[in-house]
């Protein structure tokens, strides 16, 4: 989006007002992405912070060959997977359940969806998030994740089958 590019250009000049606006546009989306694959609010907040600091420091190096959202989610992906690797090494443990609050009172449905999502491996969960929540195409997702388009389609195929089985 043109507004994202304009904000990022201003961030590159150390404009804190633009940085705040860019943060407001992306913090919740990055947080929900990180929460989807990490399952920990604490770690998801760490991803938001590290991602946005990287955006602040790297705004001037944005080449403009992709959408700003693709670039920011690519940074977030690297941060989130670095934490996943750290967790796998046992540096810190994230055992919080994936939190899906239920203000509308649809407890059972939301719980079933939460449970189905948690059963997916992280690499399928992130494809589902980007495709269904962010509305990204498999080409954009392949770019963010740095994997072939065929792999994205394959992950989605298996994710959809797994989700349909659990939610049927």
């Amino acid at each position: 989006m043109a507004e994202d590019r304009e904000l990022l250009a201003r961030v590159a000049t150390r404009d804190e007002v633009a940085f705040r606006r860019l943060y407001d546009r992306y913090a919740t989306r990055v947080f929900r992405y990180a929460l989807t694959i990490l399952g920990s609010q604490h770690l998801a907040e760490e991803v938001v912070q590290e991602t946005m600091v990287a955006v602040w420091e790297g705004a001037g190096s944005f080449k403009g060959s992709s959408r700003v959202s693709t670039w920011i989610f690519g940074v977030a992906r690297n941060q989130a997977h670095a934490l996943l690797r750290r967790e796998a090494r046992g540096v810190r443990t994230a055992n919080e359940p994936l939190v899906l609050p239920d203000p509308a009172g649809q407890v059972e449905k939301v719980e079933r969806v939460r449970s189905a999502l948690e059963r997916l491996p992280p690499e399928q969960r992130e494809v589902v998030f980007f495709a269904f929540y962010e509305g990204l195409s498999y080409r954009e997702i392949a770019r963010i994740l740095g994997i072939p388009e065929g792999t994205v389609k394959s992950r989605m195929y298996h994710a959809k089958r797994n989700l349909a089985e659990v939610l049927a």
């Binding site: 913090a27 947080f31 998801a44 609050p101 969806v113 939460r114 269904f132």
Partner: peptide, 14 residues
């Protein structure tokens, strides 16, 4: 897609 979109939309904010 509808159910998951709804579920993601109900996730908390930082």
């Amino acid at each position: 897609v509808r159910d998951l979109r709804e579920a993601f939309g109900l996730m908390p904010e930082p």
